[in-house]
């Protein structure tokens, strides 16, 4: 696993991907931080929350080549024919991508230090937001791994990952839309309005239950919980398992 991890992590810096991602993240986080400094009200947790909306661009760039490049270049043979397991391969690549995310997140730690050094407040909520950031990143990187294992084209895998993350980011919007539209359709169909509303909001609850952003929103106020983190982690493991199955399937394919 360390062999794969080392190679993948270093390969981010053998081609532009690593530098592009780090530069992009530094720039965006810098803009937020400077903006807050100019208004003399620094809230690091707010900065982190805002940065999360850039997962949709950054994660696909990081993960798009993880598996698709190997398949395209024929280097995946190395993983199947050497004394390592597919688990090593998936875990190594996932951890390499997470490490890149960590490296780019160092920016935010620097902002925390700067804030603290100049008499600002860095509290539990800020660290809560940082923790959530990493657990969400793990979930999205796992999705990116899966998208990359689906195809041998980097572009398509990036697009797929983008779409997956887009859907997750819009879950809440989607839920409230469903809530109102389903209940009004049911009322039109002569369903008792109380029941129709209950059904609509029930449906919305089911969908927003899946929303990792909603689940983890209290962390930034310093209210921590294990359940939301466990949710993100188990979703990540689920997608990594799917990735693993995709790689195994390739080998057993009979078409």
């Amino acid at each position: 696993m360390t062999a794969i991890f080392k190679r993948e992590f270093l390969s981010f810096f053998r081609n532009p991907v690593g530098y592009v991602v780090i530069a992009l993240f530094s720039f965006i986080s810098g803009v937020y931080f400077v903006n807050m400094l100019m208004n003399i009200s620094v809230d690091i947790s707010l900065e982190i929350i805002s940065l999360r909306s850039f997962f949709i661009i950054i994660v696909p760039i990081v993960t798009m080549g993880l598996f698709s490049e190997d398949r395209k270049k024929g280097t995946e043979v190395l993983y199947y024919t050497n004394p390592i397991t597919m688990f090593d391969v998936v875990a190594g690549k996932f951890l390499a991508a997470m490490s890149l995310i960590f490296v780019m997140f160092i920016n935010v730690f620097i902002h925390m230090i700067v804030t603290k050094a100049f008499g600002g407040v860095v509290g539990a909520g800020d660290f809560g937001a940082a923790i959530v950031f990493f657990f969400l990143a793990a979930l999205f990187v796992a999705i990116g791994c899966f998208a990359s294992a689906l195809t041998d084209s980097q572009i398509i895998s990036a697009l797929l990952c983008f779409l997956f993350i887009l859907v997750i980011q819009m879950l809440s919007t989607f839920a409230s839309f469903l809530n109102s539209s389903v209940s009004s359709v049911l009322i039109l169909m002569n369903v008792d309005s109380e029941k129709a509303n209950a059904f609509g909001s029930g449906l919305a609850d089911v969908i927003s239950w899946l929303d990792p952003f909603v689940k983890t929103q209290r962390f930034r106020f310093g209210v921590f919980g294990v359940a939301p983190l466990f949710f993100c982690l188990s979703m990540a493991v689920f997608f990594l398992y799917l990735t693993f199955r995709m790689l195994e399937k390739k080998r057993w394919s009979q078409r």
Binding site: T2, I4, K6, S11, K73, V77, L78, N82, P83
Partner: peptide, 27 residues
């Protein structure tokens, strides 16, 4: 087993020695 497939599985972005060291890690 040592395997050389039809198309040698090489990483174009690594130097020869880096690649061989990576293979040592794998094996």
């Amino acid at each position: 087993i040592g395997y050389l497939p039809e198309q040698p599985p090489l990483y174009n972005d690594m130097t020869v020695i880096e690649f061989l060291n990576f293979m040592c890690d794998l094996k």
